[in-house]
Design a protein around this nucleic acid. Sequence first.
DNA 1: TACCCGTCGTAC
DNA 2: GACGTACGACGGGTAA
Length: 950
Amino acid sequence: MDDTLYLLDGYSVIYRSYFAFFRNPLRNPRGENSSAVFGFFRTLFSLFREYQPRHFAVIMDSRVPTFRHEQYEQYKANRQETPEDLRAQIPVIEEILQALGVPSVRVDRYEADDVMATLAERCRSEGRPCRVISGDKDLLQLVGEPVRILRPGKDGIDEMDRDAVYRDWQVWPEQIRDFLSLIGDTSDNIPGVKGIGKKTAADLLSRYGTLENLYDHLDDLTPARRSKLDAGRHEAFLSRGLISLACDAPLPAGGADYELGDLDYQAAAPLMIAQGMTKLVEQTGVSPVVTEEGAGPGELPGDGAAPEKAPREGELGPSWSPRERAGLVLSRDEQERFAREGRCELVTTREDLTRWISRAREAGTFAFDVETDSLDPLTANPLGFSLACSADEACYIPLRGPEGALFQEEYLRQELRSLLTDPACRIVGQNFKYDYKILSRWGIRPGQIYFDTMIAAWLVDTSAGGYGLDRLARDYLGYRTIAFADLFSEGEAPAQKGRRGSSGDDRNFGDVPLDLAARYAGEDAFVTYRLYTVLDRLLDKREVRDIFTSLEMPLVPVLAEMETAGIGLDVFALEEYSRELSLTIERVEQEIHDLAGHPFNIASTRQLQEVLFQERKLQPLKKTKTGYSTDTAVLQELAREDPLPERVLAYRMYTKLRSTYVDALPRMVHPRTGRIHTSLNQTGTATGRLSSAEPNLQNIPVRDDQGRRIRDAFVPRQDWVFVSADYSQIELVVLAHLSGDEALMEAFRNGEDVHRRTAGLIFGVAPDEVSAEQRRIAKTINFGVMYGMSAFRLSNELGLPRKQAEEFIQAYFGTYQGIGRFIEATVARAEVEGEVRTLLGRPRPVPDILSRNKTVKAAVERVVVNTPIQGTAADIVKKAMLAVSQRLRQENLQARMILQVHDELILECPPGEEQQVRALLLEEMSGAVSLAVPLGVSVESGDRWGAMHQ
DNA sequence: TACCCGTCGTAC
DNA sequence: GACGTACGACGGGTAA
């Protein structure tokens, strides 16, 4: 039996409703404002429909001044007098409530907040669930099982539990009072502390917990903050008094259970109809009383009583934590465990070490983490290791203590190696690629990398963005980790800036006192273990176990090896090129300034806009959020009228090359290895592709000669060669497979030039009669379709009339009818499932697929169509990488993969292995998956990257 | 001075 | 508003 008590904050809902329609008020048949009445009952009924409460009361404010006014005469003094046309609606609402038989409560000298707090506390002591419906921030202080806030939002009702409060405000419910005391609340004339905003307040409270403790530690703060807080001390504590809720409101005796019987719609209907709420009445099922009055508010566009909707965006809205969104239920035991800090034992003796290692062995599955003296995996040395085989116990094994070495390095290495390479041991880590690299250099090649929590979290939601341990702990466990920076709160080492090759941040974990270090390191391990227990279940729930185990996890060491291998760069060639570019840029810059008649910063789009559209009176062709666009397409168009835009295009091309590549790449050469080591990020995309950063080696120019010169600066090691293999048209092949379109499949089966064939089909000519122009158009459409390109864009791209572009697209879908069907089916399926999946089952959630906003809906549809194509191609390349890596090992080859650029694998190999490697690549890449059409692969070799695939 | 956002441009 | 997925440089504003 559901005995949940629902408490509706009457004035909160009334005010919100009134102001929601403020610009366009609803009126009853007598012409009086009825926004509040209507909004209030719409909220009430939708709440009843959704939650079907059995115990319910509307809580109203005292009509006489409250004890707060007695405390602080300024209280709510700022608040504007309640508008008369709102005040008039309150008795109407109460009358209808009474007719319906909905209990309402009002206590003199107490605000509704205090009454609700009193009732909520009573529920808490009885362990009875309680839901408070209110939009007021200060009520968030009541949240904590079994009490939650229901907040009426744009799209229905958000349910706020502790996690939700934290996510929205970065403070816990019990800190809300102190939080509001700091930031103040202008609407209630709560002063707060001047100069302290949300961010600062949340930050201070996360560090000091409470207002008192914060004021006890003013001396630890920066001078600016200290003086603000000092000045606002009185206001802060006064504010808190005002915000604090009274839990001792004298409740009226009798009927305290607020049981909600059947509503008496019959009695309420006439009153409601008098307010024009005919639609709401219809919904109640009472036969509508015909009136001759005009349209009531219920018939106004967009505010009609909405019938039950299909689940829409917002339903799993922002108040859901990722854990809840994924539908994961934690047991009571887990909730309690996860809220606690775990223990960490400092291991300093061989006996302790032996004990922990055998414990890990017995557990079989354990979280492992390496602490290092630097973030650079090529130079970092381990300082210690942490280990956890349960959710709340960890150990930290430091290599050395203040007195020197605690373990013989070789002894520790052997002990750990025996554990980490034991085939029966399953290692759990967070971003283990990093630990793998460190351990490899230290002489341990971990055996079974079983579970990377970062990758698991990514697979559970590929578009969450950000999978750091701190964030995962907060999102999935509601646990706040010790920040790395907090290890250095005192005696911070002065940062040395501007040193070449240094990050500028010299804070070293090795300088942290051992007990604090152990707490931090131990936390990493047990939090990782906790995340593992949670995410492990989510893998099954989201049906991604297979792709996790057989694709993503095995890829971790492969990527680690690629990053460690790096790629050679001909720095001299680039330095020469930089000098040439600088001369050219100087010249072009001068030409532009001469044309403009004055110097200006060409790289500033603002200044350029001024020159183009005001001084030179050129016609702006496209707008951006902040002004007129000056992008390439616009400048090309303007170049027909004026010589300056063409020069700007040249200037942009040269400066782009110089700043992004020619000057930046040599700076990325690692001082130790003399090579460039990119990061291949496994969790960086929503589709399943890898991404590359620091530097990004997946966007090195290739299309024109100036750009190719940069690719030419990438070289293999002395006397070796590059071998590059790329899939031909992999995304179109995938599209052919996924859509099953006969004509497109036929093109690939015959090994034809697919763009030529497309042109032939849509223009109705024989393939060998297709003109270059026709092929260009077909190629643009072929790619455009995969991105959901519009006729608008196509006509722009091709310089054709819009009408003609539309005809081409129509001809295209006429030719490839399977593609149209594929698009429709994919969108329809996404609408039902709220996600799309690739061939190997990698999901991407698309909660906005049911958006009523046309632009949003269209954008999500493009995502939905593109993701299975791009993502399946990514799956295939990843599978190929695993296969190639395995073959290289099996055949004892020295050749190694060094780069992946979405459809291309680049290897470096000794000349003697070249033929074997080429054959292996061809075989493993074309055989990576079996599709309805063959996967074409072309292999080339060269002594420069730019020498291949011209 | 450090960070954030907008615009632009490179890749597949 | 109109083409999907990335990363990163630069300008220019704001906060520290």
